[in-house]
Simulated scan of single mutants.
Amino acid sequence: MPPFEQILSAGAAVQNLILALKAQGFSTVWRTGLLCNEPAVKAYFGVGADDYVTAFVYTGTSPKDESKRKPIDIEPLVRFES
Rank of each mutant, 00 (worst) to 15 (best):
Q24F: 04
G11F: 15
P71Q: 01
L21K: 14
S9T: 15
Y58T: 03
Q6G: 04
R79W: 12
P39D: 12
V47R: 03
Q24W: 07
S62G: 03
G46R: 13
P3F: 00
A23K: 12
A49Y: 00
K70G: 07
P71N: 04
I74K: 12
P3N: 08
N16W: 10
Q15G: 02
K70H: 10
Y58V: 10
N37R: 05
N16S: 13
Q24L: 14
D65Y: 08
S67A: 15
S9A: 15
G33V: 03
A49P: 09
T61S: 03
A20F: 11
P2K: 07
L35M: 08
N16C: 12
A43D: 14
Q15D: 08
T61D: 01
T28V: 15
P76A: 08
I7Y: 01
S67H: 01
T61G: 04
T61F: 00
L35R: 13
L17Y: 10
G48W: 09
G11Y: 15
S27M: 06
F80V: 11
A43Q: 15
G48F: 09
D50S: 08
F26V: 10
D73S: 05
A20P: 11
A13S: 14
F4K: 07
L35G: 11
P3G: 06
V14Y: 01
F56Q: 01
T59R: 03
P3L: 09
P76S: 06
G48I: 05
L34T: 09
S9G: 15
F45I: 04
F45S: 03
I7T: 09
L21G: 14
G25V: 02
V57W: 03
S9Q: 13
